[in-house]
Design a protein around this nucleic acid. Structure first.
Length: 620
DNA sequence: AGCACGCCGACT
DNA sequence: GTCGGCGTGCTC
């Protein structure tokens, strides 16, 4: 029996970011991952922590305290996950405690009393031939492009491929982990599990589930082999005999943690693959620039499923719905077939202008633009609140909409096709699926609902506008959202891209998403922009500490390898760095900000002086 | 985060 | 003299 336990606290504080050794009282049973209560600090106040190591002796010179009690014998996490937390903390210039806080679920004592292991899958059950599962026998890490359109049963191909690969592992007595961007894709994967009769062998890890269900599955994952699936926090679920990790649509922004320390599923799972020595699949209809980079480096082996693709029609029309497109929509609807129209902007209009002087109308309090939301309210882009519209500076009262949005387009369709069901779906008000037959759906990118049998016509009405957005990843994001929309097509579907010409039009003809994203990737490579490099950002809470940080970096040994980029935010420092310098930069930023935070004259309770993001995709 | 220690100004 | 202000630093 070990005598000493090293304990860690799930706290973001850098002062507490280390292991503390405690004596294990005789007769106490615990293991790595157990939750314990220990006396801590000068007041010997009880504090709960996680056992991270069992050992015989301590390097600590002073006297050791004793563990007061074992709160839960059930391990909350595993040694491998603790190692993963350390590595992620290192890369994100964060603390282990902060990552650990993300890795530990909320505890529900009652759940611990009645957990029983999951049933075992009979290994005799035959498995269908799966290209993906076959490829995994040959390569450790795979990038997978599934068949674009579902071949049957309205279950997406990728979800069936994932479930089949997971089934094969389960038959070999191994677990798998599937990480999905959002609830929609969770539902798709569940459909595949149901289709293959695997539901009872699976464990769901999503934050929207009630806490006790989630905690129960968290504990079960460590004692039963299963198909584990969930959204991004599932990246840190401790799993028994994990052999396969699969990530769907790694370019989706839902995979990025929005609060400090801003980790993302792809980076965490790439590290987890190494820590746990598992197989890894990163899959999407349209590749992310990062995964193309990993294929280029031969870190991922590319695999593409064969399959039919819908017909494509491209118009270089400046209007979103030219006469010919409109006629095709009309024809489809009169045949009782479902139609999808993807519109980039939400609401009735993106902006409004004065009818007399043509000036854009601004918010009276902050001078930001005003748009019209789906309920028809005038809203300021900055203060987000509904704005009462005052008279224009020229005295004019009338306005006209600039760039009408999805609600206005849906309204036009309602007038053109009074006998057709017109549905709207957007991120704020998503429609997951519809069963109507002759339906016309107007959706914003990422909110396209499923329809039974698939859409027979899909109109990407804002193709030109989406690729022209002044953002670094505009093209990659646009193509990704087109691919996902088109994956909802029926087998005899037609896809219309409005407003495209030139090289992109040539590439989109064959729905060769990889060629488009790849070309964009090469362009960025030659410009030295992400993902060939990365952008780190540090937001300071005040000007004095912002200047101290900048001075500190300018005096550092890394100065010649860093590039300072201009930033719109006033206290935001943006740095461009090479992947190979990432670990060193993270260390530098962490030690520098820790030092400056300790000395800061401007810190306020509860507020961080510096917020570090080692991979900021929003910054330019 | 807490909590003690410590080194300066105002007070019975 | 000594009570208490909160800046600095440590917690196994």
């Amino acid at each position: 029996m070990s005598k000493i336990a090293a304990v860690r606290f799930a706290s973001p504080l850098p002062q507490l970011d280390r292991e503390y050794d405690y004596l294990i009282v005789e007769g106490m049973s615990l293991e790595v991952g157990s939750l314990v209560e220990v006396p801590f600090g000068s007041g010997k106040k009880a504090k709960s922590g996680v056992v991270v190591e069992l050992k015989e002796d301590s390097s600590h010179k002073g006297e050791l305290g004793s563990i007061t009690q074992v709160l839960s014998i059930h391990p909350q996490t595993s040694a491998k996950i603790l190692e993963l937390c350390k590595q992620v903390a290192q890369r994100q210039a964060s603390t282990v405690g902060e990552i650990l806080a993300a890795a530990l679920p909320k505890r529900f004592v009652r759940v611990e009393k009645n957990i029983s292991p999951l049933a075992k899958l009979e290994s005799a059950v035959s498995t269908g031939v799966s290209e993906l599962a076959e490829a995994l026998l040959k390569a450790k890490r795979v990038h997978y492009t599934p068949q674009l359109i579902a071949s049957s049963d309205d279950v997406p191909s990728w979800a069936l491929d994932f479930a089949n690969a997971a089934k094969r592992e389960l038959q070999a007595g191994k677990s798998s982990l599937v990480v999905l961007p959002d609830y929609r894709e969770v539902r798709h994967f569940e459909l595949a599990l149901e289709h293959l009769g695997l539901s009872e062998f699976s464990l769901k890890h999503v934050s929207t589930d009630n806490g006790s269900a989630r905690y129960g599955n968290h504990l079960l994952a460590q004692i039963s082999c299963a198909i584990n699936y969930g959204t991004r926090t599932a990246c840190f679920s401790a799993i028994k005999d994990l052999a396969l990790i699969m990530l769907w649509d790694d370019g989706d922004e839902s995979h990025i943690e929005q609060s400090s320390p801003y980790w993302n599923s792809r980076d965490v799972l790439l590290q987890r693959q190494q820590v746990e020595d598992t197989h890894l699949v990163i899959a999407s209809h349209s590749p992310s620039a990062e995964s193309l980079r990993l294929i280029d480096l031969n870190y991922l082996v590319a695999l593409r499923a064969k399959g039919t693709k819908p017909l494509v029609r491209i118009t270089d029309s400046f209007t979103r719905l030219d006469d010919e497109t409109f006629a095709l929509v009309s024809k489809c609807l009169s045949d009782g077939k479902p139609v999808l129209v993807q519109i980039a902007n939400l609401g009735w209009a993106s902006a409004i202008a004065c009818s007399s002087c043509k000036e854009l109308r601004k918010c009276p309090s902050c001078q930001s633009g005003i748009w019209i939301d789906p309920s028809g309210m005038y809203r300021c882009r900055n203060c987000k609140q509904s704005a009462l519209l005052p008279l224009c500076t020229c005295g004019g009262a009338n306005t006209r909409p600039i760039r009408i949005g999805a609600s206005a387009i849906a309204d036009q369709f309602r007038r053109s096709f009074p006998n057709t069901t017109i549905l709207e779906s957007n991120g704020d008000n998503p429609l997951l699926s519809t069963t109507a037959s002759g339906v016309l759906v107007v959706a914003t990118p990422g909110a396209e609902p499923d329809v039974v049998g698939g859409y027979d016509l899909i109109v990407i009405a804002d193709a030109a506008q989406m690729i022209g957005a002044p953002r670094l990843r505009a093209l990659e994001k646009a193509v990704g959202s087109w691919a996902n929309a088109i994956s909802l097509a029926s087998k005899q579907s037609l896809v219309i891209f409005v407003g495209l010409s030139g090289v992109i039009a040539d590439q989109i003809k064959d729905l060769d998403f990889e060629a488009i994203v790849g070309g964009d990737f090469q362009d960025r490579l030659s410009l030295g922009l992400p993902p060939s490099t990365r952008l780190a950002s540090v937001i300071s809470s005040n000007l004095a500490d912002f200047n101290l940080l900048r001075e500190g970096l300018e005096k550092s040994a890394m100065l010649d390898r860093l590039r300072f980029l201009p930033s719109a935010d006033k206290f935001c420092l943006v740095l461009d760095y090479q992947y190979s310098d990432g670990a060193e930069l993270a260390n530098l930023l962490r030690s520098l900000t820790n030092l400056l935070t300790a000395q800061s004259k401007h810190k306020r309770p509860g507020e961080r002086v510096y917020r570090i993001n080692m991979d900021d995709s929003k910054v330019i």
